[in-house]
Amino acid sequence: MSEVATEVELLGLGDDALIAAQRLAEWVSRAPTLEEDVALANIALDQLGAARMLLAAVGDEDELAYRRDDHQFRNCLLAELPLGPGRGDLDFGWTMSWLLMLSAAQLLRYTDLAGGSDEQAAAIGAKAVKESTYHLDHARQWMLRLGGGTEESQRRVQQGLDGLWPYGHELTEGIRDRWLAIVEPVLAEAGLKRPDDRWRPGGGRDGRHTEHLSYLLAEMQSLHRAHPGAQW
């Protein structure tokens, strides 16, 4: 990211956080333990909070969240993927792999934002850095437990990592080396294999998304769009 964050960059980060919050909230009342239910809701709330600040820096948060179509969203593809192997699936191994990848990238992006000369963006970045640090630590702890737990947990978390890894290329454009320096040691410590880098899907930042985003938006926007102009 350059010295001064552009609107496009802020929108991309805001959309990443918004779509991630929507995905993570799917876990509410479904987590493996009650403690984890609280933790995942907490991370979803942080993502939503960051999204609101970033979107408000660019325009009206609700206009942006509820009135745009999928091709107008600028989030990276990783954020919109289902948190399991297919649409409607929720798998904890996929989710922690996803959170590790996403939060490491967000930590770097927000750190850069916090160091920039745009005061408003720097303030948003500084707050979000603290939250991302916690998200990353939470994901890291679980990667170690799942990687070093049972045969089944290792198989499932590796499967999640394999499924999501290709989307890390778009996620980490411009920060790849710094990102790998965070993520690779976690994989090594957890005894997980770094997947290959052959396939590199992208296009989210230009509004070309996966099939999954329009379903997510259809649900998220349905009530708001059914009542044009209403206050809530």
């Binding site: 909230a25 799917e26 509410v28 969240a65 509820y66 009530l223």
Partner: peptide, 18 residues
């Protein structure tokens, strides 16, 4: 939660359920 009609209401509801 997934269909809350504004981001503010979504945050309030998510926090409440938490």
């Amino acid at each position: 939660i997934s269909r809350a009609p504004s981001l503010r209401r979504k945050a309030i509801l998510l926090a409440k359920v938490q």
